[in-house]
């Protein structure tokens, strides 16, 4: 990194490293109180208080519902079309529209589309696959998946200031504060 600069080119944000989940939750509370809005926390396992503090809303449940609904309607309509319209078959005089028999495949397709939306859709809205991300430029960050807790205030936050944000982060009792290159 060259000389300290204001927001913008080259600097993604400032990263503070913490040793325990309790520390990072406390730090995140302070970051929020200080008025920062463009920040994120990186932890080895889910810490619900962090996304509550970020006021993050997850679109996954609504997406999954839509996926399931599509699966249900589309498969039932498709089966009806094949058996009633496209190629009606007389099987022992049973009605062509024998809908109870179509419930099992309709049910399975509903689950299939809802499940694929939940699993693959979640990865997609999280932006994966994403092999490169600025946070990986910090060497210590490899412990974010293991046993350390990281908080990043991004440089696009209106309150972000290279010097004052750094001293603010240092007051929160981190192990280390590092610059995250773009």
């Amino acid at each position: 990194m060259s000389a300290p600069q204001e927001t913008g080119s080259g600097l993604f944000g400032l990263m503070a490293e913490f040793e325990t989940p309790t520390d990072i939750v406390k730090a995140a509370e302070s970051v929020r109180e200080a008025g920062y809005r463009s920040w994120n926390a990186y932890t080895p396992y889910p810490v619900p208080k962090l996304w509550e503090l970020m006021e993050h809303k997850s679109p996954v449940p609504a997406m999954t519902f839509m996926g399931g609904l599509t699966g249900a309607v589309a498969s039932f309509a498709f089966i009806t079309w094949t058996q009633v319209v496209d190629y009606p078959w007389n099987i022992g005089g049973r009605p062509t529209f024998s809908w109870p028999a179509w419930i099992p495949p309709t049910f399975e397709t509903t689950i299939l589309l809802a499940g694929l939306t939940a699993g693959i859709g979640m990865l997609a809205i999280n932006g994966f696959p994403k092999p490169y991300h600025p946070v990986f430029n910090v060497d210590a960050f490899e412990r974010a998946s293991q046993d350390r807790y990281f908080l990043v205030i991004k440089s696009d936050d209106p309150h972000f200031d290279r010097t004052s944000t750094e001293s603010f982060l240092r007051e929160l009792g981190p192990v280390e504060v590092s610059e995250v290159d773009e």
Partner: peptide, 9 residues
Amino acid sequence: RGAANHWHN
């Protein structure tokens, strides 16, 4: 990368 919003989703 274990971001909090990713964990939520």
